[in-house]
């Protein structure tokens, strides 16, 4: 049983082929994509270079900036450090999937627009995905200091932090009031 399990989960590995391609199914924004990738492809590059979902950004590639933040089963994670293969079977949500299907902006997007919570816009998807995760997380308090602490893994070099905080608080009020 043990050996059989191993073989089954490895996929088709040709011992002579170091590239060891694997076929996997990634569910992104509710849609399932079948991809054949080498194991060393991280989710961020799979999204951007294979699926052309370029909303998640590469700012450091090492978990040091937060621009690549996406939701995995609703929780924010740094997609640059997540092997794509390990995301199989989980619900991946990117910025492209945040708004309603009819185009109605998510409250966090609407708040970012109204509060000018960005400048260049490059970290913005990551900021909004993190904010979405935080607002859904019962373990994170929603006072300004707690939000700032919880958002600190998302660097905004333009320094639009004040407006981002205002937007997150505003979105929180909208969501709570709804």
């Amino acid at each position: 049983m043990a050996d059989a399990t191993l073989d089954a989960t490895v996929g088709h590995v040709d011992p002579n082929d170091t590239s060891s391609l694997q076929t996997m199914e990634l569910t992104v924004n509710g849609q399932t994509h079948t991809l054949t990738l080498e194991p060393n492809v991280v989710l961020l590059d799979a999204l951007r270079e294979r699926l052309n979902l370029t909303g998640a950004k590469k700012g450091c590639d090492h978990g040091q900036c937060g621009a690549c933040t996406v939701l995995i089963d609703g929780r924010a994670m740094n997609s640059c450090l997540l092997l794509a293969a390990l995301a199989e079977g989980q619900e991946i949500t990117t910025i492209e999937g945040l708004a309603d299907e009819d185009g109605t902006l998510h409250p966090i997007q609407q708040a970012f627009l109204e509060h000018d919570a960005y400048q260049c816009g490059y970290c913005t998807a990551g900021q909004m995905m993190m904010a979405t995760s935080i607002l859904n997380d019962k373990d994170i308090a929603k006072d300004p200091a707690s939000i700032k602490e919880a958002m600190s893994g998302n660097i905004c070099r333009c320094g639009a932090y004040k407006n981002i905080l205002d937007a997150v608080q505003s979105a929180h009020r909208t969501i709570e009031g709804a």
Binding site: A2, D3, T5, L6, T9, V10, V13, T18, S19, S20, Q22, E38, P39, N40, L83, A85, L86
Partner: peptide, 26 residues
């Protein structure tokens, strides 16, 4: 990042069996 083989065992025993000098757990 160099290429590697990804092994996805479903038991601790298999995980230990798959480990070697040139492997790493993730």
């Amino acid at each position: 990042m160099q290429s590697f083989e990804l092994i996805r065992p479903e038991s601790v025993k298999d995980a230990i069996g798959a480990q070697s000098e040139r492997s790493a757990y993730i």
